[in-house]
Amino acid sequence: MSESEPARIRVMVVDDHPLWRDAVEHDLAQAGLDVVAVAATGREALARFPAARPEVVVLDLQIPAPDGVEVTAEIVRQDPSVRVLILSASGEHADVLAAVKAGATGYLVKSASREELLTAVRRVAQGDPVFTPGLAGLVLGEFQRMSDEPTPGRDAQTLTERETEVLKMVAKGLSYRQIAERLVLSHRTVQNHVQNTLGKLQMHNRVELTRYAIEHGLDDD
């Protein structure tokens, strides 16, 4: 092992399906990643998270309580630098969107191949959001919904024209490289645009949650 080799990515796998959890763990370990913890339920995940200190959490949404969305919100609150990659079997729109709003930065359906999973974990670890076309479509729809139903007196987060354009291309299945070529931008700029859209969505969510808390007096105690 030479010292120049990059540190192994520390990953935690949360899935209540033992076969599946083992398969993911096996794949990640074989590819040289460091699986520092596994968990079968939301409770286990939250209990093991602080000690394991993973960089990336590969998380199934449908787990025994607390569910994947709540786990995402809680671990991101504890450690804002952690990256959450959602791995969902059913890909239910509402759940995926909720998880992304709660702070997840990547989403894959479970039918993704081993290579796709590994690439996704590595990219998420670097801070790149992993968008499937499906997720991009959901996020586009969500921003459209927010601008269609503006709440009086409240500024909805809106996307710039460029961000919308980039997100639309992601939703149409273009890779970042293809988008960069078409728009004559650098690969990095395309990534930044995508990252910003997620950031805005999560910001909107935080603002909404804070407003809700204030309006309902949850900040009193």
Binding site: H17, A23, Q62, A89
Partner: peptide, 21 residues
């Protein structure tokens, strides 16, 4: 139904993945 579907989807995805390998 969601719980059942999720279980079935998990297994199908797993079979697909392992089978391919």
């Amino acid at each position: 139904a969601r719980a059942v579907h999720d279980g079935v989807l998990q297994v199908l995805a797993l079979v697909q993945r392992r089978g391919h390998e």
